[in-house]
């Protein structure tokens, strides 16, 4: 009789103990989740997409497309050289520019510019783009990713900070065949 009473009481303690652990778990889950989701939350903080200088405008002669490199605006100490990125800068006519991300719009491989045939070609699956970044042939479903640019005090700036992927169209300035 007393044992069944004791069992109930101990059972209650077990339940209370489980409840206490549950509360502790829930409390701990909040910072754990915040920690895990920090790469996503980072996107809403200032400085995520920033203007980065590519150097003097006169490095990019009119009518030509040249490779430029820059360091990502947000870096961590362990990034090493992976924080560097390239882009293609097209000086359309001395006044208007186009800045293309290096990543192919198909699966992100680095596209190369061939001035002789005026084409960007991707070494992976053979995507090809015309000089204005629009799709020429191959598996990409769209033109090259274009980055926003501005010119201040004779220097060319691009907006950078995120790897362009086919799914991040919302955050990138997308134009189809702007000069066609």
């Amino acid at each position: 009789m007393s044992s069944s009473e004791g069992t109930t009481r101990r059972g209650l303690f077990v339940k209370a103990g489980l409840l206490l652990n549950g509360i502790a778990g829930a409390l701990l889950a909040v910072p754990v989740l915040r920690y895990l989701l920090s790469p996503v939350a980072r996107a809403r903080k200032p400085g995520y997409l920033s203007w980065v200088s590519l150097g003097r405008v006169d490095q990019f002669p009119a009518g030509e497309t040249r490779l430029a490199t820059y360091r990502n605006p947000v870096v961590t100490p362990s990034d090493g050289e992976t924080a560097n990125t390239s882009c293609w800068v097209r000086n359309v006519d001395g006044e208007r520019f186009q800045v293309f991300s290096i990543n192919c719009a198909h699966l992100g491989c680095p596209v190369r510019w061939f001035p002789q045939s005026n084409l960007f070609m991707c070494p992976c699956h053979g995507g090809a783009y015309y000089a204005d970044g629009s799709r020429a042939s191959g598996p990409p479903e769209r033109g090259l990713f274009e980055q926003r640019y501005k010119i201040e005090d004779g220097a060319l700036f691009v907006e950078a900070g995120e790897l362009p992927t086919p799914g991040t169209l919302v955050t990138l300035n997308v134009r189809r065949r702007p000069w066609a």
Partner: peptide, 11 residues
């Protein structure tokens, strides 16, 4: 972003 741990492929 969860895959890369950030906006770019890096550390």
């Amino acid at each position: 972003k969860l895959l890369l741990g950030g906006p770019i492929i890096a550390g």
